[in-house]
Design a protein around this nucleic acid. Structure first.
Lengths: 213, 213
DNA sequence: TGTACATCAGTGAACGCGCGTTCACTGATGTAC
DNA sequence: TGTACATCAGTGAACGCGCGTTCACTGATGTAC
């Protein structure tokens, strides 16, 4: 049986997490492809060889980091989608929520923004897959709203992707702006969202050019 | 005087360009921060030490690459903005133009997308500065259109930035999709642009929440 | 035009260094009886 | 509960390798007279 904690297993997981945390910290000022195995283990306080007990190489540590990092953001997406009330208020709250998360865990957002188009293939693919899931989640939530009556599924997915991409862009812009520029970035982000929302409300007014083909 | 070609200077510029081209080629499959000086000179066919006759280090080669790469894209922005006619047609043409440029010089777009949030500070800043310029160019062009009557300058800049960001996102998505997925990406990109354009047309219908403060 | 000297882009050898990976190991944890 | 053996997370020494950077150099190009 294995219902006990398992001291060995617990220690192993702890070391693994230490390695992931060390890597995430280092990645705040460099990209994954320039991150060294020895650099990570040095920061984590373990021997270089210990690394191989947990990951094949830096790339697979990167993939694990993607899953952990974007997993922690699922809660955020949920919170945004659960918002109700006036659309203007919801919009403000969404931007505030992103801003708060970015301030609370900047390293996570920095990592995703940096590696989304970075030099490590498997990591890029892992991020793309997760963001696609997010877009689908958002699309599904949008589908339940009255404003989405009559929308094609493809268009809902397009809109979901638009929102997710803008979430990433906004987060990244906030990181670049620093704590002082936050307000201005949030202000612009809110306007962009408002414009997209306006487009959404008038989507069905316009004839769809390729509806018949 | 120096109105003559200057054989020495011409040769130096040629070598410099060879280094830049070699680097751009290598950057198709890795990021700048993992690019080695020796790797570049080996590909360019010169001695490692020759590198220092042209650049202080890899980072400053990166900055030079940004200027050259985004310089070549100014023409594209101009071409898109010069389009006239039905808004639906303009929109299609814009996406086609991006698609063509991405197919013709994938390495340039890949480099910008990758290093926009990459690990090399000076390069990140150079890209951000250039994209800001692009956004201002677009905003200025939008200001001349009848649809922009009554718009605040700040909102025009917001819209310009929105278009530029989407250009980058679209280009990046096309690179990821490869030649087969191009059509689908272009299709989604067109819909996103249409939605943004719809939002634009109804921007002044809605009351601006912070107009009075 | 011809000569004598200066410049300087690119060379080639050399350096010290940190890297990723291997290997045999140690000792705490887990398991069978 | 106690003992004897198995497992395996983490150690520490060692390796070969490519890196960025230095230095004195060479020889074609540029310049002054």
């Amino acid at each position: 049986m294995s219902h006990t904690a398992g001291i060995r297993q617990a220690q192993k997981l702890k070391t693994r997490q230490t390695l992931l945390d060390a890597a995430l910290g280092l990645l705040e000022h460099q990209s994954l492809s320039s991150l060294g195995l020895r650099e990570v283990t040095r920061t984590a306080g373990v021997t270089p060889t210990a690394f191989y007990r947990h990951f094949d190489d830096i790339a697979s540590l990167g993939v694990a980091l993607v899953e952990q990092t974007l997993g922690s953001l699922h809660g955020m997406i949920g919170a945004i989608l659960a918002e109700t009330g006036d659309s203007e208020v919801r919009l403000d709250r969404s931007v505030d929520l992103i801003a708060r998360h970015v301030r609370e865990q900047p390293a996570h957002f920095r990592f995703i923004a940096r590696e989304q188009h970075g030099g490590v293939g498997p990591v890029r693919e892992a991020i793309a897959a997760q963001l696609r899931l997010f877009a689908e989640e958002v699309a599904a939530a949008l589908a339940d709203e009255p404003e989405s009556r009559g929308w094609h599924e493809e268009d809902l997915l397009m809109l979901g992707g638009l929102y997710v991409d803008h979430m990433v862009i906004t987060a990244s812009a906030m990181l670049d702006a620093g704590p002082d520029g936050d307000t201005q970035v949030a202000r612009t982000a809110r306007r962009r969202l408002r414009l997209v929302t306006l487009g959404r409300l008038h989507w069905l007014d316009a004839p769809s050019p390729d509806a018949g083909s």
